[in-house]
Design a protein around this nucleic acid. Structure first.
Length: 561
RNA sequence: UGGGGCGUCGUCAAGCGGUAAGACACAGGAUUUUGGUUCCUGCAUUCGGAGGUUCGAAUCCUCCCGCCCCAGCCA
């Protein structure tokens, strides 16, 4: 397994923290937080932030809080909160008793706003949304000051109180920080810090009708939690001056510092929350945990392990460059982890009947098969062998090319963990010409042993005894999008992959998998890693999701997808 | 266009004035009862470009070029 995940990473954030520690800021304390808004499930991009924030806390023997940044009631819900709690835990991180909600700070934030008004640094503005936008100016032109900018402190206090009391309609007034309408940074042109919004909040119900804006709530929440390093993504860089402006005015000491890093992008996948919500709501996928989704719960259901995801986050690093990580790296991390831990099993996804003509009619032999070729400590299992078998339809070709290492007319192959068999004849469907059945003979002397004459066979294939086969349903998941960077496209939905889900209903797995434990991963030899679905289980017919295919050089040679 | 940020291999990413780590991907080869794993080998004379400073520059300076973010009462 990769040892990079355990080696201490170096990055610019750690440099900043080291420097702060050297200057003895915050009494040598390091406190971070992971602050998602509960308006959707967290995805692999959030996982990067989770690993970063909790990883930093661990490395510096500090703390990392989980904070739900729920300052806009629209779209937020307890279901999302619960999914976030579950997913961060599953990723392997613990915030102990430090679970916080921005909504728990509403009263304190309101008091902070009053303090700002009293300092003469915030005012109630009664411009309409359109007027506010017009007054804001543009990139090239400075904004114009609001006619309400110079209301007296008393009037502002009274108006703000009445805003809270519900005396005004939504949008009638807002509270604004009094900064500089001519600031080159548009964020600083008297930003709105409170708005009236009559929308029930999933936690505070209708107790509040005014809600603080992100810029006001976030930095103060950080301060209230005594966060030392507030790590967020690059698009908030423009907001940092405002973060500092607010904190400098309201927090006397131990002010938190905002540090930005580049958000994650992964090829062939979309991580925009807006897009993911759309995929779910318009039923392009079957919910947030559809195994094709890039969400943490989908990856769990698909069979990814938390270790694989953490290793991935360690491998990609943290920097400020815009990036597009090759999804192959994610898949590599998944294989790398699963290769170590997954027991092997045989299965046949697209069955083709094989009859061993010279094998006794009613005989059954149990082969002891290793659960892991490199790990004897993982033990063995019995795999029954009999006269009629299923092999993978792909593993027989009537007219094979030279590089094909499997069964064909005149060829001999090893049945994995069993005998060498030799092709004798085939039966075809008279109408379609499709091969229906292969007849072979076996060499009894090759039971788990090389042939005495030292001859080489064409290859090794997997198989299942027909009489002992357990029917299963197998789902092959492929990437959801067909283009490398769907995230950069306005309408990425037109690039949805129509073949992203293939359901195979006539599969067979080993009898050992009859009562497979939901959520457990196996390597189906020569096929890939599969996971028993944790949700969709059926009596006697297990359902497997393909986590990821094995690295397969033959598909490259043959040019198959 | 004003402001903010970023440009090192196909993709990420170290590097912080002393002569380009590592990972993925890719290409060869060895071992293999998984076309898996493992193991070797190869893969940036050059760091967006051009000048300059220096004995010495990816690292410092100047100019230029390219990409990303900001004009929600979203976060």
């Amino acid at each position: 397994m990769s040892d990079l995940a355990t080696s201490a990473p170096t990055d610019f954030i750690r440099d900043i923290i080291d420097e702060d520690l050297r200057m003895n800021k915050h009494e040598g304390r390091v406190a971070t937080r992971f602050p998602p808004e509960p308006n959707g499930y967290i995805h692999i991009g959030h996982a990067k932030s989770v690993c970063l924030n909790f990883g930093l806390a661990k490395q510096y023997k500090g703390t990392c809080n989980l904070r739900l940044d729920d300052t806009d009631p629209a779209g937020e819900s307890m279901e999302y909160v619960e999914s976030i709690i579950r997913d961060v835990h599953w990723l392997g991180f613990d915030w102990e008793d430090r679970l916080f909600y921005a909504s728990d700070y509403f009263e304190k934030l309101y008091q902070f706003a009053i303090e700002l008004i009293k300092k003469g640094e915030a005012y109630v503005c009664s411009l309409s949304p359109d007027e506010i936008r017009e007054h804001r100016g543009s990139f090239t032109e400075p904004g114009k000051e609001s006619p309400y900018r110079n209301r007296s402190v008393e009037e502002n206090l009274k108006l703000f109180e009445r805003m809270r009391a519900g005396e005004f309609a939504d949008g009638e007034h807002v509270l604004r920080a009094k900064i500089d309408m001519a600031a080159p940074n548009i964020v600083m042109r008297d930003p709105i810090i409170y708005r009236i919004k009559r929308e029930p909040h999933y936690r505070t119900g209708d107790r509040w009708i005014i809600y603080p804006m992100y810029d006001f709530a976030h930095c103060l929440s950080d301060a209230l939690e005594r966060i030392t390093h507030s790590i967020c993504t690059l698009e908030f860089e423009n907001n940092r001056p405002l973060y500092d402006w607010i904190v400098e005015r309201l927090i006397p000491a131990n002010r938190p510092k905002q540090i930005e890093f580049a958000r994650l992008s992964v090829s062939y996948t979309v991580l925009s929350k807006r897009r993911l919500i759309e995929l779910v709501q318009k039923n392009y996928v079957n919910g947030w945990d559809d195994p094709r989704m890039p969400t943490v719960s989908a990856m769990r259901r698909r069979g990814y392990t938390p270790e694989a995801i953490r290793n991935f986050c360690a491998e990609i690093g943290v920097a400020k460059n815009d990036n597009l990580i090759d999804v192959a790296l994610l898949e590599h991390c998944v294989r790398d982890d699963l290769n170590e831990r997954s027991p092997r099993a045989m299965s046949v996804l697209r069955p083709l009947r094989v009859v061993i003509d010279n094998y006794p009619e009613n005989q059954v032999e149990d082969f002891d098969s290793a659960n892991h070729p490199q790990k004897p400590e993982m033990g063995t299992r019995k795999v029954p062998f009999s006269r009629v078998l299923y092999i993978e339809r792909d593993d027989f070709m009537e007219d094979p090319p030279k590089k094909y290492n499997r069964l064909g007319p005149g060829r001999e192959v090893r049945l994995r963990n069993a005998y060498i068999i030799k092709y004798e004849s085939m039966l075809k469907d008279e109408k379609t010409g499709e091969v229906k059945e292969i007849h072979c003979t076996y060499d009894p002397a090759t039971r788990n042993a090389p042939p005495a004459d030292g001859r080489k066979v064409q290859g090794v294939i997997h198989w299942i005894s027909a009489a002992h086969a357990v029917p299963a349903e197998v789902r092959l998941y492929d990437r959801l999008f067909t283009i490398e960077d769907p995230g950069s496209v306005e309408d990425c939905l037109q690039y949805l992959n129509p073949n992203s889900l293939e359901i195979l209903t006539t599969c067979y797995v080993e009898q050992n998998l009859k009562n497979v434990k939901p959520g457990s991963q196996y390597q189906f030899e020569r096929l890939g890693y599969f996971c028993a679905d944790e949700k969709d289980t059926r009596e006697g017919k297990p359902v497997f999701n393909r986590i990821v295919a094995l690295r397969d050089t033959w598909t490259k040679i043959a040019g198959k997808g």
